[in-house]
Design a protein around this nucleic acid. Structure first.
Lengths: 140, 140
DNA sequence: CGTACTTCCTCTAGCGGCTAGAGGAGCAAG
DNA sequence: CTTGCTCCTCTAGCCGCTAGAGGAAGTACG
């Protein structure tokens, strides 16, 4: 099913219309063909790219990483070491984030549990924010 | 120890110098006094606010939430229900993020583990990105 | 054939939360 | 008195979009 409109492409790929145009603008997506009325026409290939990009974005890869991954995809003979490195970097980043979010959660839970639902003066939420020493530990 | 420079305030509070000025600009921090040379002079009160802000930012509260929390702190007679609600909202947001990051981690791990370190053509990293169906599940 | 509606186009500006840099003033030490 | 540090203000940039203006082109119906 080739030759669909940008709106259809957005629905198929899950990337919003203005975002598609944005990706084209920053050169992440090659400019698709145009019809006689200057409208973009998306082929299977464009849709595959869009889906790739969307998926990579969902996995948290930034645009530069995606650019590299797309380049790699275009040259299947090359070693995949680079792709591997990018994914690994992303993985360690995600692990780091998880770690700090877990610490955060503990702290927020303590705050919320400690709240006596009275007045601000004795509110544990405000108190903890005001006095860092009341945190569990110095993870931040 | 009142009356310190912006640099010292930055060191004490852990908020960078330009960020302090930025907070003042957006009205999150009341404009501190100035000395005869037009330089900002930070008193204990300013430092306490800065520390409060930094801590709240570290906990992921956005500027609007912090504005409200600071307002609340200034009126200790008020009910802390609002502070409680803000913290709870933040908590559920954090929980949500943790959840999706955990799913992400699983997927990234599979990608990385599956990489045979050969050529791009058989690279699992590229493959998974290209074909969403190869993901563990449709959590996204 | 006209006209209303939808989709599309380009372009610019804005979001949040800073960060970087230009260009200049003030102040202390050597 | 010059060197060097800190400070000031102001503007512009970062990322990854998103929103809106202003206009053209295609489709549906009378």
């Amino acid at each position: 099913m080739p030759s669909i409109s940008i709106k259809a492409a957005a629905m198929v790929s899950g990337v919003k219309v203005p975002t598609i145009r944005y990706y084209e603008q920053i050169g992440l997506l090659a400019s698709p063909k145009r019809d006689q009325g200057n409208r973009r026409v998306f082929e299977d290939d464009d849709l595959r790219r869009l889906t790739f990009i969307r998926h990579a974005r969902e996995l948290g890869f930034d645009v530069e990483a995606i650019r590299t991954l797309l380049d790699l995809q275009d040259t299947p003979d090359r070693s995949c070491a680079e792709a591997d490195a990018i994914a690994k970097a992303r993985l360690s980043d995600v692990n780091q984030r998880i770690k700090s979010l877990l610490a955060l959660r503990t702290e927020l839970e303590l705050m919320v549990e400690g709240c006596s639902h009275g007045h601000v003066a004795e509110c544990r939420v405000i108190e903890v924010l005001a006095d860092h020493g009341k945190c569990l530990r110095d993870h931040h």
